[in-house]
């Protein structure tokens, strides 16, 4: 980040939506810039790399997915999709193309800002170049250097696969992680079509980490898309 106030590129063709976003972002300490088409978005990303991108999926000259792919070619800038499409297949396509998160319209300002902050936080952590040594959330503490998990200071034994899944979720805490990403993290490329393996292991993880596995505090389900670890 060149300045303390992050520069947010909004890729959106609806003028009213752009106005709402500009007011929301600027009143929350962010700088606003906009693009109303795929072509304009790509040239703006190249000309002045933003610190965060909010992208709509349906643009007048094509799919927002193209913006995501173009941005991902040479940068890890956080990308949050903001779309009226609520089908799970659209979410998966955007996340697989490289988006960090997905917010459906209509949205509340609070919800959107929370997701943007998570994205900026992860980007800042990446930029610092240091890999995190520990992850702490409420009663859960994961000591990444020593591979130790404790809950209310009591050690929790995780199997290697459970641990890998948890670490994958921690790396994107607060953001949704797709089934295929988690399957790859847990089993490599071999089990990508075996979603029930993942569900069995997530059930196991919840039994070990959650007070009430049917009402989880840490490990949330995004049915049809993946899982999300609480950020705070």
């Amino acid at each position: 980040m060149t300045e303390a106030r992050p520069l947010v590129l909004v890729v959106e063709d609806e003028p009213q939506m752009r106005r709402v976003l500009r007011l929301t972002l600027e009143s929350n300490g962010m700088r606003y810039t906009e693009a109303i088409s795929v072509r304009e978005a790509i040239s703006k990303i190249r000309a002045q790399p933003p610190d965060l991108i909010i992208a709509d999926l349906a643009l007048p000259d094509g799919e927002g997915l193209r913006v995501i792919r173009a941005a991902r070619e040479d940068s890890s800038v956080p990308i949050v999709v903001l779309s009226a499409r609520s089908q799970e297949s659209d979410k998966i396509a955007a996340l697989d193309a490289g988006a960090d998160d997905y917010v459906t319209k209509p949205f509340s300002a609070g919800e959107l800002l929370a997701r943007l902050r998570v994205g900026l936080r992860h980007a800042a952590a990446r930029a610092s170049g240091e890999s995190p040594e520990a992850f702490t959330l409420l009663d859960l503490r994961v000591d990444i250097l020593q591979r130790r998990v404790t809950l209310r200071n009591v050690p929790v034994h995780l199997t290697p696969i459970e641990y890998r899944l948890l670490i994958c979720l921690i790396a994107k805490a607060g953001q949704v992680v797709t089934h295929s990403e988690l399957l790859r993290a847990g089993w490599g490329a071999a089990k990508l079509d075996q979603q029930h393996y993942l569900r069995i292991y997530m059930t196991g993880l919840r039994r070990k980490l959650e007070l009430d596995p049917a009402r989880p505090t840490y490990l949330h389900t995004e049915t049809g898309v993946g899982y999300r670890l609480s950020a705070d």
Partner: peptide, 17 residues
């Protein structure tokens, strides 16, 4: 239908959320 194997615990949990 996109049928997959789901634990009821997870589906009910997601709905409650």
């Amino acid at each position: 239908l996109d049928r997959q194997w789901h634990p009821l615990e997870e589906l009910i949990g997601a709905a409650l959320e």
